[in-house]
Computed example of a mutant assay.
Amino acid sequence: MNARTQTATAAQITPELRRWIIAQAEAGCEPAAVLQAMRAAGWSENVTTQALEETLAEHLRSQGVAADALIAQASRPVPEPDVEGEPVWLDAGDRRVALLGTVALPRIVIFGGFLSDEECEALKAQAAPRLKRSLTVDTRTGGEELNDDRTSAGMFFTRGESPLVERIEARIARLLNWPVERGEGIQVLRYGVGAEYKPHYDYFDPAAPGTAKLTERGGQRVGTLVMYLDEPLRGGATTFPEAGISVAPRRGNAVFFSYPMPHPATRTLHGGAPVLEGEKWIATKWLREGPY
């Protein structure tokens, strides 16, 4: 940042803004939550970071709270589609994708027509012979476990496993401005009647003993893309209960959400509501902070 930018940024950090930041801290808000709120209100990246460093961090340190680590995490880059200017359509390289909606906090972007009907059917056909009861990450050990909260059947493609998978991964990278090598393999899941995935976070809990093992390769997860391959007749929405948001599982559409720090302040608690009638298929792509 040059001297002119520093001066302009400092001018935006008004006494009123400083008082508001301190009031949030005294009300018990964590640094990450304050940063997210400022971003959602339209403050620029420079202003939010500098304001926290100069005001919130100093205040919290005076209270014996270590704010620096959370601020550093909340300021790191995350996948983000280019929605500047509120476009109706986005360029995904080999395909135009509709922009159906955005939410600032939690950061959610909903896409229409991300996959064609033919791509949905092809992914299902390639995945079906390999489906097994879905496991969840065990953050105690860094392994996997059966969990009653998740009652789907699933499988993983290796990255670039087939021309179809490679094409979809390139589309994701182009749309979300995140390199292919920073993504896990695509997971395909099938949910029958009554199947669900109860609300959870996709990042790995920093306090859990198995997280160091889970993040050895690629670091933390920082974003999730859920692609809908087939829609049930009723139920099966992707829900964000803390934000009161529900995304219908329409075939070919997708929902993306990001989380710049592994913290509940991102408000990315989410789940797959029970399928009430029919069958739901999805493909999930988790994005990491580094090469995976």
Results as ranks from 00 to 15, higher is better:
121 E>W: 09
8 A>W: 11
163 P>C: 11
17 L>K: 03
9 T>Q: 09
242 E>Q: 14
273 A>Y: 01
92 A>D: 02
205 D>I: 04
98 A>W: 11
5 T>G: 05
288 R>P: 02
84 E>Y: 06
66 A>G: 05
194 G>Q: 08
101 G>Q: 08
78 V>T: 08
219 G>P: 00
268 T>I: 03
248 A>F: 05
86 E>H: 13
60 L>E: 11
125 A>L: 08
249 P>I: 00
249 P>F: 00
104 A>G: 06
229 L>H: 07
55 T>A: 06
3 A>F: 11
101 G>E: 05
153 A>R: 15
196 E>R: 14
282 I>A: 09
80 E>Q: 15
30 E>N: 07
4 R>N: 09
51 A>F: 08
272 G>D: 00
153 A>Q: 14
205 D>M: 02
268 T>A: 11
38 M>G: 02
71 I>S: 00
31 P>E: 11
273 A>P: 00
283 A>I: 00
276 L>T: 11
123 L>E: 01
66 A>N: 12
104 A>N: 10
81 P>S: 09
47 V>T: 11
80 E>G: 11
282 I>V: 15
124 K>D: 05
12 Q>T: 14
189 L>E: 00
224 T>Q: 05
192 G>Y: 10
136 T>H: 08
227 M>G: 02
90 L>W: 03
40 A>H: 10
46 N>F: 11
28 G>R: 07
270 H>T: 02
261 M>H: 07
260 P>K: 00
96 R>M: 13
2 N>P: 03
155 M>D: 05
290 G>D: 13
161 E>T: 08
232 P>K: 04
241 P>S: 04
75 S>Y: 02
196 E>N: 06
56 L>D: 00
224 T>H: 03
253 N>S: 15
59 H>C: 10
121 E>A: 15
110 I>S: 10
213 K>D: 12
174 R>D: 08
254 A>T: 04
85 G>Y: 03
254 A>D: 00
51 A>D: 10
245 I>D: 04
70 L>G: 05
22 I>M: 03
260 P>R: 00
217 R>A: 10
71 I>Y: 00
41 A>Q: 14
242 E>Y: 08
127 A>P: 04
244 G>K: 08
260 P>W: 00
176 L>H: 12
47 V>R: 01
232 P>M: 06
233 L>N: 14
97 V>T: 09
135 L>G: 05
142 G>V: 13
22 I>C: 02
